[in-house]
Amino acid sequence: MNLAEAYSWVNIRFLLDGLLITLEVAVLSIIFSFIIGAVLGLIRYMNIPFLSKFIGIVVDVVRNLPLLLIIFFTYFALPQIGIRFSIFWSAVSAMTIFESAMLSEIIRGGLNAVPNGQMEAGRSTGFTYMQTIWYIIIPQALRSMMPPIVSQFVSLVKDTSLATIITLPELTHNARIIYGQHTSYVIPMFIMMGFLYWVVCYALSKLSKRLEASYR
């Protein structure tokens, strides 16, 4: 096992190109899923007749599906009904669908964790229902929601490796190409993949602790 050859600049650059794709998919999925998940979680918290129950059913179905199945659906099934995405956007769409469902449950749980008395106190001061949610309920709920939300984002970063099944040129895919051509590079590539994933996930974990501290 020649580490100098395995970690040549050509191979490292190829891995970093894959890491960039991984981060692009993760960042876009995080943004989209947070927005959609927040809306879905809020609707479920508000108990809007029919709509909240319908969204709850959809969320439960998606949460209990394997992410790999959703990736297959966006890439292979949607084109059958005329909806075509590139490999990149198929991965982003699948991650967004899955993570939106997961985040909506976290957000709904965080909102429900705020004592009912807070809503009553807000309404008694003259706030509207939505003003009470925005200015009183959400700020308190963020304290309990932030750690699991960031933890879910960390999982999302790692789950991007599943997109290698549709040949998305992300980190895992590029590493497989390298050690597929040189079988002696298998261990070095796994070490480097582990290190790069760890760097990204550790940075998100540190961010989580800072955000958690800021909301205390």
Rank of each mutant, 00 (worst) to 15 (best):
V10C: 03
N11L: 04
N11A: 06
N11Q: 05
I12Q: 00
I12P: 00
I12V: 14
I12C: 02
F14D: 12
F14Q: 12
L15I: 03
L15Y: 09
L16I: 08
L16S: 08
L16E: 10
L16N: 12
L16Y: 10
L16A: 07
G18Q: 02
G18N: 04
L19F: 07
L19C: 06
L20I: 07
L20H: 07
L20T: 09
I21G: 05
T22D: 11
T22I: 07
T22F: 06
L23G: 06
E24P: 00
V25F: 05
V25P: 04
V25C: 05
A26F: 02
A26H: 03
A26T: 08
V27S: 03
V27T: 04
V27Q: 00
V27D: 00
V27N: 00
V27E: 02
L28Q: 05
L28W: 06
S29W: 02
S29T: 01
I30P: 00
F32P: 04
F32Y: 08
F32D: 03
S33T: 10
S33V: 08
F34D: 06
F34W: 11
I35F: 15
I36R: 13
I36S: 07
I36A: 11
A38N: 03
A38Q: 02
A38K: 00
V39I: 14
L40E: 12
G41A: 06
G41V: 01
L42Q: 13
L42V: 10
L42C: 14
I43R: 06
I43N: 07
I43T: 14
I43W: 13
I43L: 15
R44G: 09
Y45F: 15
N47I: 03
N47D: 15
N47V: 07
I48T: 12
P49F: 02
P49I: 01
P49G: 04
F50E: 12
L51S: 12
L51D: 11
L51V: 15
S52Q: 04
S52F: 01
K53H: 13
F54K: 01
F54Q: 03
F54M: 08
I55V: 14
I55W: 15
G56D: 09
G56Q: 09
I57T: 14
I57C: 05
I57M: 12
V58E: 10
V58W: 11
V59S: 07
V59L: 09
D60I: 04
D60F: 07
V62H: 12
V62I: 15
V62E: 13
R63P: 06
R63T: 03
N64M: 04
P66M: 12
P66Q: 14
L67H: 09
L67N: 05
L69A: 13
L69K: 00
L69Q: 01
L69C: 05
L69N: 01
L69H: 01
I70W: 06
I70F: 02
I70D: 04
I70T: 08
I71H: 10
F73W: 14
F73K: 12
F73P: 08
T74C: 15
T74H: 06
T74A: 07
F76A: 11
A77K: 06
A77W: 11
A77P: 05
L78I: 06
L78H: 09
L78N: 10
L78D: 15
P79K: 11
P79G: 09
Q80E: 15
Q80V: 02
Q80F: 01
Q80I: 02
I81K: 03
I81P: 10
G82K: 05
G82Y: 10
G82R: 12
I83A: 08
I83W: 10
R84S: 13
R84A: 13
F85Q: 01
F85T: 00
F85M: 02
